[in-house]
């Protein structure tokens, strides 16, 4: 009875939230740095809830464009972070695009 109600409650959205929470618990246990933890949790989130490839690419290009501006005003650390974010969204865009094409073929 209880099992049934749990299964009914576990629709796809809720399962995704649980999985993301698990991802966060895992990196906390492994004592990763804040930046690496955020990237990992976001990665899992975008894997489960894909965003549009074009949106991911837009974010990637904008952050990449801002990065040299920051370098000009000698904010090196922040520029590095932005470059990492840019690369991260590039990877997300690539993965979603591959998945999209694969599902279209099927």
């Amino acid at each position: 009875m209880i099992l049934k109600s749990i299964i009914r409650y576990l629709n796809r959205d809720n399962v995704n939230i649980v999985v993301v929470a698990l991802a966060y618990a895992l990196v906390s246990y492994l004592n990763w740095t804040p930046m690496a933890s955020i990237f990992f949790v976001l990665f899992i989130w975008f894997l489960l809830n894909p965003i549009k490839t074009s949106d991911a690419l837009k974010i990637s290009i904008i952050t990449l464009a801002v990065s040299p501006l920051l370098l000009m005003v000698k904010r090196r650390t922040n520029a590095e972070y932005l470059a990492q974010i840019s690369f991260f969204f590039l990877v997300i865009a690539l993965i979603t695009e591959i998945r999209f094409r694969k599902s279209r073929v099927e």
Partner: peptide
């Protein structure tokens, strides 16, 4: 995702 979790758990210590 499960596969990723397992890999991170096994080898994630080096990413600190």
């Amino acid at each position: 995702v499960l596969l990723m979790f397992i890999l991170v758990f096994l080898y994630g210590k080096n990413i600190i």
